[in-house]
Each structure stands twice: as structure tokens, then as C-alpha cells.
Design a protein around this nucleic acid. Structure first.
Lengths: 192, 192
DNA sequence: TTATAAAGCAAGTATTTACTTGCATGCATA
DNA sequence: TATGCATGCAAGTAAATACTTGCTTTATAA
């Protein structure tokens, strides 16, 4: 059933189900079923349920290519850079949605995961601060506190992501492009 | 043990524990223990675990005094109104933190709760739009799209709240006052 | 003091769940 | 063909969990 190696399918199913039902709610039986695999196979591969979920977390750990992006794709044009950065960041959040939501749900249960997730906005913030600083020095945006700009940018992005993906209300039918062309445009307008 | 009626203590304990451990993770035994009550008492009062949690959700349901605030406390001075609104909103989120995080965790499990939570930013957004519209007509802020301002304001607030209360990273040691004096001040500066 | 209601206590049940064991089967490679 | 190796299958175990029952204790209030 499904594609990928047995191992991959089990990991995939684990991530999905833990996200849907929580760690306790996702039973090994269900995971095995969704992976199209006998339940014993789980234990033969990973020893325990915890081992399985940790392996899953491990596999989905962030390869932090955000820093890279910020160093290579930046064109020093605020009207191109910020939309690009939003796209990259939202794509990252989207790709890792399950693991992020797991970390929200199971806060404290997997310390390694917590640290991993926390690192993302932190490095992102640092890089953003550098970017804004540079832009100020080049006279391309108004002089102001780069740290505040960076955190505001992150709050906007994160608020949008969560309100959209979890609390289907305000941002329900607002696409990433809408978000960029409306909300981020407004943000850009305010800093030049 | 602890104060309040038996019933209240059970509800209190349920909310706390479901938030900490999730619905499945919070056992009736633990809830009873924390409430300082015999386990049977839970069932005598609420019939089932689900009944207990629903009662808890019921009790903690939002009395939406945000609308009220927006109608009574507004002074039509952006430098006073927005900080006040942030304070009110963050206070609301803070007060209802547990129930909000439960809704994030158990999305789908308690539809009533989902609807309840979703309503908050929705009504908030409408009221905010009205406010910004009025302010534009009075010439007190720049003419622009009120809806975008409102959503941005909400994204900022929600992003800050969640990054602070759950993903202890960027906003970890940023108090509400810091948030207002730095990030919201920047927002205000951008719209006048 | 007595009647009533709320809560505690002890013991149990049925079900679920993570995890195990022993054996059969298919499949690739030497 | 023969030898592993991964997987399936059937059956089972021990613990946890939601929930029940019957009886006793405590507190309130008439």
C-alpha cells in the first residue's frame, strides 16, 4: 500500500496521526493500519511507540535553509525581498505544519522537538535584524529599531499561519498571496 | 482541599490538566486527585469524563466583553485607544489561555469550543474595522484599507500571544508593556 | 436529634493499549 | 536450490482507564 519503504510509511503515518489525534490518541494499531503494515512491524523497527515518534521527529527535523535563503536570494529591494521572505517562511511553516502543530500540542513531551521548533523564529529574527539594519544603512528604509521590525514581521507571519491553519476564522480564506499583497504590503508601506 | 465548591474544584482541575496533558492524557484519577476529591464524585456530578470537560468548557465560555469595551472605553485617540485595546485583548487571551490552548490541541474534538474560539477574533475584527473607519473619517489616521489594519493588528496580537505562551522563544521575555511600547508603538507610528 | 443530601471508600468490570512470542510466508541473493 | 531477512498472522499478557455498585461517613438544616 502507498509508496515509500516500509519504514518511511510508518513514520509518515505516525506524524499524520499524532498531529490529528495527539500522542496518546494515535494508537499503534491505527498507525500500523494507515501505513499498511502489521502492527508488530512497528515494534520490530522502532522498539516502542516513543521510539517511533522520536524517529519521526528526527526525520522531519528542520534543515534550516532560511538562513541560506536570506544570504543568497536577497536583492536589497524591499518590495521584492519581503514578499520572497514571507513566501519562504510560510512555505517552511506549511511543510512542517504537522510537526509544528505537534509541538504546540505536546509541548513538554518531546524536549528535543521543543528546542528545535524554538530555534526557527530565533535564527530568523537575527537574520531579519541584520537585513533591516543593512537596508537602513543603505537608506532604503526609514531609520528605526530593527529588532522591532523583525519581531513584528514574525508576529504577523506566525499569527497569520496559526489563525489560518488552526483557528479557521479571520484568516480562513486568505491565501498567502492575499496576505502578501494586502497585509505585508501595508507593512512595507509603513517602513519606507 | 483548595477552595471553591466541589464542583468548581473539579472543573478547575479538569481545565488545567486537559491543557497540560491533553484530553486523553488527563485521566479521571489525576483530575480527581488534583481537585482533592474522590474519583467517583466526578462521575456522580458529570456522568462521564466528556461531560466533565464539556461542563468545564461551558463554564469558561467567553463573555464577549470585547465589543463592550470597544464601545465604551474608546477615546478616539489612537495613542490611547490601541494600547488599551491590546491590553484588553491580551488580558482576555491570558484569562482564557487554558481554554484557547485546549482548543488548539483538541481541534475538532469539541466543535462547540471551536466555534466559540473562532468567534472571538471575528467579532474583534469587525469592531476594529469600524473603529479604524471612524478614525479615518475623523482624519486622525491615514486613509487606507481598514480591514487590512484590523487583520494586521490581530495577527500581531495573536502571534505575540502564542510565541510567548507556547513557543518560548522570540517573545519569551517580552512583557505586554514591552510589546505595546515597542511593537504596537511602531504599528501606530505607521498608520498616522 | 433526626432526616437528607453529598461525599468518601473499597472493590470490581470491561475494554483498550503497548508490547511480546512463535511460526509461517514470500523474496532476493549467493 | 538453499539461506537469510523482512514481514505477516494469530494469540496472548500486563497494565491502565473509564465507569459502576454497595455501603459508610460527614455535614447541614429542620
Amino acid at each position: 500500500m502507498s509508496e515509500g519503504t516500509t519504514r518511511d510509511r510508518m513514520i509518515e503515518a505516525a506524524i499524520k496521526l499524532v498531529n490529528e489525534k495527539g500522542y496518546k490518541g494515535a494508537t499503534t494499531k491505527m498507525i500500523a493500519e494507515r501505513a499498511g503494515v502489521n502492527e508488530v512491524t512497528l515494534f520490530r523497527h522502532f522498539g516502542s511507540k516513543k521510539g517511533l515518534v522520536e524517529a519521526a521527529i528526527d526525520k522531519y527535523s528542520f534543515v534550516d535553509h532560511v538562513s541560506e535563503t536570506l544570504e543568497t536570494k536577497v536583492m536589497w529591494d524591499i518590495n521584492k525581498d519581503l514578499p520572497m521572505l514571507v513566501k519562504e517562511y510560510q512555505e517552511l511553516l506549511e511543510q512542517k505544519r504537522e510537526i509544528i502543530l505537534i509541538s504546540l500540542k505536546e509541548a513538554g513531551a518531546f524536549p528535543e522537538l521543543d528546542r528545535m521548533i524554538a530555534r526557527v523564529p530565533e535564527t530568523y529574527k537575527k537574520k531579519l535584524m541584520d537585513y533591516f539594519d543593512q537596508m537602513m544603512q543603505q537608506g532604503k528604509i526609514r531609520r528605526t529599531d530593527a529588532e522591532i521590525l523583525a519581531t513584528n514581521f514574525i508576529f504577523l507571519n506566525f499569527g497569520y499561519f496559526l489563525l489560518k491553519s488552526r483557528l479557521h476564522s479571520v484568516a480562513e480564506d486568505m491565501s498567502v498571496d492575499d496576505f502578501i499583497h494586502q497585509n505585508i504590503a501595508s507593512f512595507i508601506h509603513s517602513i519606507i
